[in-house]
């Protein structure tokens, strides 16, 4: 119970950005004359506060929220760059004098800017595959909306449509790869994945536990009169597995040979 509270003390930049984002949305619903100026001031103040709070984090290194996020000097450095970039964009952006932006709601833009900044901060601190995917998607979805900000413009609409299609396909392919990485290593935590990969593929055998499948294994339990014929892949010297080197890269393949026949039709394991 103390861990979330302890982590919350080093999570203040993100908390401030979230509160600022909600306030901007609330103020934008009020039909008052000076709401655009108030939103601009609130956005700038929120970003400045997040910048100062990020500076005050110092050069400490620790994990937040049970290791879902990591706080380290390089992460804080990137947080400062990202918040500074958002400050520059909000400070330099002007709705006045723009033919395309005239009449559009400014509060939406400031809320989207705060949301994309918050997502960027989470991505800079992500320490888990799930957190990485979530923050990346938050940035993507917010960016899709920002590209389609000019609702009546065909170019903006078409650019957003192409962006979202390409982005979603590439995200899907990345997610498929992440799922295979989880299958190889048995964890979504980036430090654990690093440990498993650094110790070699022989440690990536957690998925080979046949406790639920009960399928026969290729490993010989008793000596046979003649070795099994495994023309492909070649059998490694000293290996007890008749599936050769492929059992290291795809461990479950060695356990259930009937599913993965491969080119070796004469295999007898």
């Amino acid at each position: 119970m103390n861990e979330p509270l302890r982590s919350l003390h080093r999570f203040w930049p993100e908390v401030v950005l979230t509160v600022g984002l909600l306030l901007v949305v609330l103020i934008d619903t009020i039909r008052a004359r000076g709401r655009d100026v108030a939103n601009w001031l609130l956005t700038m103040a929120t970003l400045a506060a997040a910048f100062v709070l990020s500076v005050r984090l110092g050069a400490q290194s620790s994990g937040l929220f049970e290791g879902m996020l990591a706080l380290d000097p390089i992460g804080i450095f990137f947080k400062l760059i990202l918040i500074g970039s958002s400050l520059l964009v909000v400070g330099a952006f002007r709705f006045d004098g723009s033919r395309e932006l005239r009449g559009l709601g400014q509060g939406e833009f400031y809320a989207l800017m705060l949301a994309v900044t918050l997502s960027n901060l989470l991505m800079a601190a992500a320490n888990d595959l799930a957190m990485l995917y979530l923050s990346l998607e938050m940035v993507s979805i917010t960016s899709y909306v920002m590209v389609a900000y000019l609702k009546g413009d065909r170019l903006s609409n078409e650019a957003s449509l192409k962006y979202i299609l390409f982005g979603a396909v590439s995200t899907g392919a990345m997610l498929y790869g992440l799922s295979l990485l989880y299958g190889m290593t048995g964890s979504t935590s980036l430090p654990e994945i690093r440990q498993v990969l650094a110790s070699g593929l022989t440690d990536a055998n957690r998925l080979t536990v046949p406790s639920t499948s009960g399928a026969p294994t290729c490993t010989r339990a008793r000596p046979r009169p003649s070795p099994p014929s495994c023309p492909w892949p070649p059998r490694r010297p000293g290996s007890r597995s008749c599936c050769g080197s492929s059992s290291a890269a795809w461990p479950w393949r060695a356990r259930e040979p009937g599913i993965w026949p491969g080119p070796s039709t004469g295999r007898t394991c």
Partner: peptide, 8 residues
């Protein structure tokens, strides 16, 4: 079929 955790 993996290590038994619910992360996936």
């Amino acid at each position: 079929f993996g290590p038994g955790n619910l992360q996936g």
